[in-house]
Design a protein around this nucleic acid. Structure first.
Length: 255
DNA sequence: ATGGTAGTTCAACTA
């Protein structure tokens, strides 16, 4: 059994106690973190080592930053998208036995039509090209992270309110679909009857209390892996804690 | 149509 999870923690410094508690309880083999907002020299390696986990990371000050925590030591394959010269730390590819794990913090995009939106679409285009080569080289691939895209209206609390807006626009959804078409499966949608359907609730407007959420954090796997996916769910518990991240973990188990 | 909260950093940016 291989258990993997993704969690945008919105500052690892602030959320470290939540993350350590969650690791101790959930005991995943791999946890992909996004928005660590910590430089590599300041990364709290020891806190993870003390509870039996290794860590690799690609971080920066103030914004972005990704880290992949794992029970077995892993090696970094890449920290960038080929062909994209980008100072923003949003990508971390690592090897875990025979599985290539690509931890992603996709740009938010701010609003449709803005410069940040164009950056997001360009970033996604480079991700799709990179994924096409990865799935060729590695039969067992898992892409996971904060994709900042709700793939369909089923992933949105109020589709009418969000229609055409950032995280839900046609071009973002088309890019997500193109990514899937490289040979990936959205593991969450292998199963029906989920009790928790969203992975992110805006801090503003009391969105969590009213369950006004979106499913924008995903675990995507190549067919050799997804055919052995036994469970995939969103763990709402960390979102209920004091001073939570605005995201909560998405988890998958494979045979 | 605007602003609401949170994190980093200390005025303003990102989300």
């Amino acid at each position: 059994m291989f258990k993997i999870a993704s969690w945008n923690v919105n500052s690892l410094r602030v959320r470290l106690p939540h993350v350590l508690d969650w690791l101790n309880t959930a005991q995943p083999d791999v946890l992909a973190l996004q928005e660590t907002k910590v430089t590599d020299e300041d990364f709290p390696i020891m806190d993870f080592q003390e509870i039996g986990y290794h860590a690799v990371f690609s971080g920066q000050k103030t914004y972005n930053g990704v880290a992949t925590i794992s029970k077995s030591p892993s090696s970094t394959v890449s920290t960038k998208l080929p062909g994209l010269d980008d100072p923003q730390k949003r990508v971390l590819a690592t090897n875990h036995d025979d599985i290539l794990v690509l931890n992603l913090y996709v740009p938010n995009g701010n609003a449709v039509g803005t410069e940040k939106y164009e950056y997001k679409l360009d970033w996604l285009s480079h991700l799709i090209d990179y994924t096409r080569s990865l799935v060729t080289e590695y039969p067992n691939c898992i892409l996971l992270g904060d994709f900042n895209i709700a793939p369909t209206d089923d992933d949105v609390h109020d589709p009418a309110e969000w229609e055409g807006k950032i995280l839900c626009s046609e071009k973002e959804r088309a890019a997500f679909n193109d990514l899937i078409l490289t040979g990936l499966t959205d593991c969450f949608r292998l199963f029906s009857g989920h009790t928790v359907n969203y992975s992110w609730w805006d801090y503003r407007t009391a969105a969590f209390r009213r369950n006004r959420g979106l499913r924008i954090d995903h675990i995507l796997a190549t067919s050799t892996l997804s055919s052995g996916c036994k469970k995939c769910w969103i763990d709402i518990d960390p979102r209920r804690l004091e001073r939570p991240s605005d995201h909560t973990p998405v988890v998958a188990e494979f045979t």
